[in-house]
Amino acid sequence: MSENSRPKGAPRFPEGPAPDPSGGRFERRIRSFTPRRSRVTTAQGDALRRLWPKWGFDIDGQRVLDLAELFGTEAPVVLEIGFGMGEATAQMAAADPGTCILAVDVHTPGQGNLLNLADRAGLTNVRVANGDAVILLREMLAPQSLDGARVYFPDPWPKARHHKRRLIQPDFLTLLAPRLKPGAVLHCATDWEPYAEHMLEVLTAHPDFENTQEDGGYAPRPDFRPLTRFEGQGLRKGHVVHDLLFRRTATPSGVQDTAPTQA
């Protein structure tokens, strides 16, 4: 359907990402993200129309995912929360085709761009999830179903009154940990110094994670994390990028991994 023939008020992508995938079925809470509205290019729109039914899904909280069925393979799965325009995600997927990437974001142009990049590169190990990563983790992922997690350059929410919106908090780590297999690595990166310090403090204090660095500090940038355009801009401005790699420990004594609840 062309833009000119689409009825007024009709969704642009009727089989694509929904504006509110969970439909308000879950409790109101402070979120770490704000949906951004920007123009969807012709290529991104075409990718959404063609590929969303095949490689995308809404985080509706209504089912527990079978990741082997979702990807069509028993290969390890890494969760990536917040992929921007998807360039780094596509590069990592191409460099490691034996690892599947479950990429979560709420930015429609970025979703279309990642689908387009994956299609052009012939990648089959990327799936795109639309919605709230917290609902995905809590309602739709089984215990120990993930082989890793990545949170690259999340919104730092720099104003003090907004710090409560930051994603990397004790409650989030407690939610994430049971979905990770023991030994799986959570990899965070930020170019905002105060947020890096906050991440290091929160992760170090959490009983379900241990620092992979013997000195207890930041990690060198791993070769598998591409240098993104956003990161390059920050480096040119004099920003210092910090990587944090923390390993999921064995389940602490007295704590049980529980299955997701169904709404």
Rank of each mutant, 00 (worst) to 15 (best):
L67E: 09
G84M: 01
D66W: 05
E80H: 08
M85G: 09
M85C: 06
I59S: 02
Q62H: 11
E69S: 13
D66K: 12
G61N: 02
P53Y: 03
L67W: 10
A95R: 15
A95F: 07
E87R: 13
M85E: 09
L67G: 06
A93V: 05
Q62K: 14
I59H: 02
T89H: 05
G56I: 10
A93P: 11
W55R: 15
A88K: 03
E69P: 00
A88N: 07
G72R: 12
L65N: 04
E87Q: 14
A94H: 14
E74M: 06
G56K: 06
M85V: 10
A88C: 12
I81C: 08
F57E: 09
E74K: 15
E87T: 14
K54D: 08
V78I: 12
F57Q: 12
E87S: 14
Q62A: 15
F83D: 01
A68Q: 13
E80P: 13
I81D: 01
L70M: 09
E80Y: 04
A88M: 06
A95H: 11
G72W: 13
A93D: 01
T89W: 00
Q91A: 15
E80A: 05
Q62D: 11
D58E: 03
E74V: 08
W55F: 13
A75Q: 12
E69H: 13
W52I: 03
M92R: 15
A68C: 00
L65D: 02
G72M: 12
E74F: 03
M92L: 07
A68Y: 02
F83A: 07
T73S: 15
E69F: 01
T73W: 03
E80D: 07
G86V: 11
T73M: 09
F71Q: 07
L65W: 03
A75F: 02
K54Q: 14
L79W: 07
W52M: 04
V64N: 01
D60L: 10
V64H: 01
A68K: 14
A75P: 01
F57C: 12
A94R: 15
A90M: 05
P76E: 04
F71E: 06
E87I: 03
F83I: 04
L70F: 08
A75N: 12
L67M: 02
